[in-house]
Write a protein that binds this DNA or RNA. Sequence first.
DNA 1: CATGAATGAGGTTTCATTCAT
DNA 2: AATGAATGAAACCTCATTCAT
Lengths: 175, 175, 175, 175
Amino acid sequence: MSSPRDRIIEITFDLFAKQGYNSTGINQIISEAGVAKASFYLHFKSKEDLCVEFLKVRHQYWFNELYTFSSGTNDLPERLIRAFDFLIEMNKKENFRGCSFLNILSEIPVDNVKILNVIQSHKADLRNYFLDMLKDEVLSDHIYMLFESSIIESQLFRSNELIEKSKKIITNLIP
Amino acid sequence: MSSPRDRIIEITFDLFAKQGYNSTGINQIISEAGVAKASFYLHFKSKEDLCVEFLKVRHQYWFNELYTFSSGTNDLPERLIRAFDFLIEMNKKENFRGCSFLNILSEIPVDNVKILNVIQSHKADLRNYFLDMLKDEVLSDHIYMLFESSIIESQLFRSNELIEKSKKIITNLIP
Amino acid sequence: MSSPRDRIIEITFDLFAKQGYNSTGINQIISEAGVAKASFYLHFKSKEDLCVEFLKVRHQYWFNELYTFSSGTNDLPERLIRAFDFLIEMNKKENFRGCSFLNILSEIPVDNVKILNVIQSHKADLRNYFLDMLKDEVLSDHIYMLFESSIIESQLFRSNELIEKSKKIITNLIP
Amino acid sequence: MSSPRDRIIEITFDLFAKQGYNSTGINQIISEAGVAKASFYLHFKSKEDLCVEFLKVRHQYWFNELYTFSSGTNDLPERLIRAFDFLIEMNKKENFRGCSFLNILSEIPVDNVKILNVIQSHKADLRNYFLDMLKDEVLSDHIYMLFESSIIESQLFRSNELIEKSKKIITNLIP
DNA sequence: CATGAATGAGGTTTCATTCAT
DNA sequence: AATGAATGAAACCTCATTCAT
């Protein structure tokens, strides 16, 4: 059996993504991880600290999945389309729970800089992901914004409709 | 002095928009509204009910402000640009708190259909707002998605940068 | 049966005096008072608040008992002696638990002004009690200090020895 | 670098005197001493044990300082006055934190005999300090009590006023 | 229509101590 | 002799909601 710390992170990964930050209590985490409460606080200074750790793990996981999903082609438009198909895949896997980073952004007080920084950093990386591919800041940000909307609107309407529409739109945008 | 119900709604309007749904407790609401606890539950079956009411009021308010801000021109591109300028105005007024509807979407459990419906309805109206103007579903959804991203990204980065970029992009999109 | 608030105060009165401030938890108080936790916080903003309330009640009680015990004579030396006999009485009744005010003074952080003020106020009243009787500040403070020591030393040694010695001393001090 | 045990004692000496017994956690002690948790319990059976050790070290320290401060004169009244001036010096050095022994007396449960004995022993030594000087039990206990009050009242009122008053009083007491 | 007291369930965090290595 | 992870129990406090009046 894995270490308490690992079990906490594993369970947190599931619960935060599924239920959100505020709806997931320490009690549920330690209970499902089979860990004593004091053990939790041995490894994480606070729930906020756990959140930062979660976001970092999620960041790793999410980009890994994206890379894996998009690899296998060097065709630029194809790679872009695959990024959006990745969203469809994630919606299927996670039942339209949207973006953990944006969800937590909505849950934290405006002055929580520690968490905000991690979220900003994640999205900055995503912006760069598109910029690296397209080498055109206006175009890449354009697509980044369609990508972000695609996540949110599919979460809102529990549907991939606008993701599909985005795919069509960007097909026409790319030279 | 206005009725207890009105005072509750008025205060809720401020607090939910400013602090979010979960961070605003019933106690704070009734205390700032100067209303007894039981009086609150006389007018609202639950906090969820109040949330629905809040979203309806917010819906009214938000579209009124948008209409007011966009009126005064019949030029199509100009009206579109003004919609985005309205976001800048709101960010200034509400300190980059983002969209109350999307924020609450992130805060509620996935199975809360009652609230979800109100949020979906609001965003459907917004989609129609652009569709009515543009009469082209692909184009209007395209702009709708840029609009949604503009809200979220400005909330995330506490900056109007991507709103301004969107304005430039749509200028080139409109025939 | 009395109100929850009264039961809380009654139980607190016993527990704080018997066990001290830090050794008495909210859980024990509400459990012995037969009151829900939220009911406690309905009436007291915090444990610190309860402490202030306790000290005020204790202040009332203690001076009432002192007055009662010392009444029945107008002879000055006799009244003074009775004040010290009152300490013996209290030690018997409360098993040498000493002074609640001084005990709590030792338990709070140095910067807790709210509680400190109440304690200072109590002791200032006691100093004035002797000053009013003796009309001589040096003499009254002299006796006040013997009185304070009498409390503490009897608590420390679980004995009335130094109270008795103080009685002999002040008999020689009074003209 | 000194041994873990010594570092623990050194840090404890500072923290217990500054923050009190209950407000100082084992975690803070080992963290500031740079010692592992288990190493602590290797040297001390319990926090209570550490407390006993602390009181013994404090006892040594306190009397040493008192002797040092009072030496340099063989004049009896002068030596007595210096004892009270020593209190003023300690208040200055330790910011009116009072007597560690009496503070801990207030913090421990009434039935903690182990710690109680050490405190009683310290104060018995202090009583003997005055008795050895004065050879008159009534007078020495009289002054001992003024001394004890002086400590406590200066802690309570964050002022040396009653110490100064005690000095005047005892000047008149000594033949 | 209005009230304020009362609640059960849960929140996050910290305590002194022990165990396996 | 030394360690750091793990713990059960308890700390103080807040949540949305209901009840008796």
